[in-house]
Simulated assay, not measured.
Amino acid sequence: MNIKLIDIPKIENILGNIAVIENDVLPFEVKRVYYLYDIPSSANRGGHSHIKLQQVLIAISGSFDVILKDGISEKTITLNKPDKGLLIRNNIWRELENFSSGAVCLVLASTIYNEEDYIRDFDEFLKSKSNGN
């Protein structure tokens, strides 16, 4: 599956840690940053794939599960450490669920928002995979 956990460099200090994301940490230039917060624990987010976009998800606070599907296999990754990022390359279906109280999901994206880059129907996603995407 075209995903990878990335270690976010950190500077440890008795007064608190600092996580640092510079150009050499990610395999793409960041074009958009956004974050999800105040998410009810029963909410499901995501439910789509991207044709070109790549992104890194980071649990800045709390925890949540990321369910990933490539059309053949499925994998669930729990994000709960602010010094770990989940790189999700294009053509991977993603769903986010099981948000803890106070969870914040930071997203670093390789492109600006483009609705045409989204596949929001799972059957359409599977069809695109069978067409070689």
Rank of each mutant, 00 (worst) to 15 (best):
D123E: 14
A19P: 02
K75W: 03
R32Q: 06
I39R: 03
L26H: 08
E115H: 13
R32S: 05
S42N: 12
D117N: 11
G47I: 04
V104L: 03
K31R: 15
K127G: 04
I6V: 13
S41A: 09
R89H: 13
N2Q: 14
N23H: 14
N23S: 15
A19R: 15
N13Y: 04
P27R: 14
I67P: 00
Y34A: 03
R94A: 10
I67F: 02
H48E: 09
I60R: 15
I8N: 00
R45C: 09
T78V: 11
D38P: 00
L106G: 01
S61K: 15
K10W: 09
D121W: 07
A103Y: 01
L36C: 05
H50G: 05
H48Y: 09
M1R: 06
I14T: 13
T78Q: 13
F122P: 10
I112W: 11
I6W: 03
V66A: 13
V20H: 08
G132V: 14
V56T: 05
I8Y: 02
P27M: 13
Y113C: 05
N98D: 10
N13K: 10
L106D: 01
V56S: 04
K10P: 04
D70N: 15
E74S: 14
R45M: 08
N98Y: 02
L68T: 05
F125P: 10
I88W: 08
D117Q: 08
V66H: 00
N98Q: 10
R120S: 12
K81I: 02
E74K: 14
I51W: 03
K52Y: 12
K81T: 11
R45H: 05
H48W: 01
C105Q: 10
L96H: 03
D7C: 05
E74Q: 14
K81R: 15
L53I: 10
V25E: 08
P40H: 11
F125L: 06
N98C: 04
Y34I: 07
G132D: 12
I11S: 10
E115R: 13
V33G: 04
P40D: 11
G71K: 04
Y37W: 13
A19W: 07
D38Y: 14
N91F: 13
N80Y: 05
I3A: 04
S63W: 06
S63N: 09
E12D: 13
A109C: 10
V104Q: 06
L96R: 04
W93A: 00
V66W: 00
K31L: 08
W93E: 08
E124M: 11
L68Y: 06
K81W: 00
H50D: 02
H48F: 06
L87P: 02
V33H: 09
Y118D: 13
A43C: 04
A109G: 13
E115Y: 11
G16K: 07
K69H: 12
K81C: 00
S100L: 03
G46F: 04
Y35F: 15
I112T: 14
N44K: 15
Q55V: 03
G85S: 08
I77Y: 03
I77F: 06
I88Q: 06
R32I: 02
N17Q: 08
L68D: 05
E74A: 08
S41M: 08
V20T: 12
